[in-house]
Design a protein around this nucleic acid. Structure first.
Lengths: 208, 208
DNA sequence: TAGATTGTTAATCGATTAACAATC
DNA sequence: TAGATTGTTAATCGATTAACAATC
């Protein structure tokens, strides 16, 4: 594997390049210039070229970058051979929205289970994903060898769930509750707090 | 007003400080030290002190920071006097989740309308928010003087909606679709792409 | 006092952007 | 060729962290 430990922001953009390039491919194009990719994402061509430099991909002066090759290369960087299993904890509107998104985006990430405590939801299947009772969390996580957990529960139980996930051997957590979590070093944690996003927009709107 | 144009990240943390401090206040505490605030968010005390320095708030050596005062100060920075009106465009699971969140968090941001094209949703009220047909978007936005728009539609229509929002005089847009948008300078744009977040976690889990 | 804490400047780290040589 | 493009180094910008004087 090339260039280990890519910058955070580069990884994010690689994910976006790949999706945009897949669209372009459908339109029948085979090659693309850095300024065209930049246009799709509304960033600068230099940034695109620098990112591609970091992953060691080179284009040609006359035709730019080979779209298929680039898509494949990004795949070898982001995806794992066999894909990674994902669980959603909390089957509210947000949990459902996430399951829905995954369903549409064919990716190497596979949501294989959801969890909730509401009896009406247990054992129901939502767009192909079965919902289990929270009691079974550790059991199913270990059995299925699930690598990533997405927390969309009420904030009050977020910490407790993070502990259970960690104990069950999870390797990455995406926390959508506004409760800040802390996890051991070997677990990768990414937090996204909607309220903060709203208030941030409000602030910048105010002083515009 | 103090210290104009705060750093992006400081604004985000101020929002989080405020919510954490509100909790602490309920527990009967009146004062708090920087290392305690830091503990709540799992960041460093220096970072807390630096943020507070930027907004010009000072504590005391013996008692730390006055929680109520600090909450109020953050309010004068982030909130506007009369609050700001918000519209959610796209009444799917994600739109509903957002409306729900707002409902629980009493804030100066007020979701006053939702929009969709599904006839079954039109004119229904979801946790206090009425859903209108997309046709009425410009009309209601102008009439109600809505400042912020949250886009949770399918990505295919995101650009078109951003144009309409802009024309209707919106001042900030939060884009939850994976389609990158571009807006005029006078509109503040914040994008959040879930798929990118998932793939980012997957990448860092892979190379851990 | 000694120890704990604040407020702030300087140093470092990470990410973007500018500048430009090389090439088709 | 001239113009457009790539790949890459150096400069800049933004954010975090280290260091430390001041003070109760």
């Amino acid at each position: 594997m090339i260039a280990n430990r890519l910058p955070d922001k580069t990884v994010e953009r690689l994910s976006q390049y790949r999706r945009s390039l897949n669209n372009v491919l459908l339109q029948g194009k085979t090659h693309i210039f850095s300024h065209e990719i930049a246009g799709l994402l509304h960033i600068t061509p230099v940034q695109v070229r620098r990112d591609l430099m970091l992953i060691g991909y080179t284009g040609t002066l006359r035709r730019g970058y080979d779209i298929k090759e680039l898509i494949n290369l990004i795949g070898t960087i982001i995806d794992t051979e066999k894909g990674q299993k994902v669980a959603v904890i909390g089957m509210g509107n947000l949990g459902k929205a996430i399951i829905h998104y995954f369903h549409e985006t064919r990716s190497k990430l596979d949501i294989v289970a959801a969890f909730d405590i509401n009896p009406e939801k247990i054992n129901k299947v939502y767009v192909g994903v079965k919902c289990y009772h929270m009691n079974l969390l550790e059991k199913i996580l270990s059995e299925e060898n699930i690598a990533i957990g997405i927390i969309t529960t009420p904030p009050e139980v977020a910490s407790e769930i993070a502990v259970k996930l960690t104990q069950a051997g999870i390797r990455g957590i995406l926390n959508y509750t506004p409760k800040p979590l802390s996890v051991p070093d070997h677990v990768y944690l990414e937090e996204y707090d909607m309220i903060t996003s709203f208030e941030k927009v409000a602030y910048f709107v105010k002083y515009h």
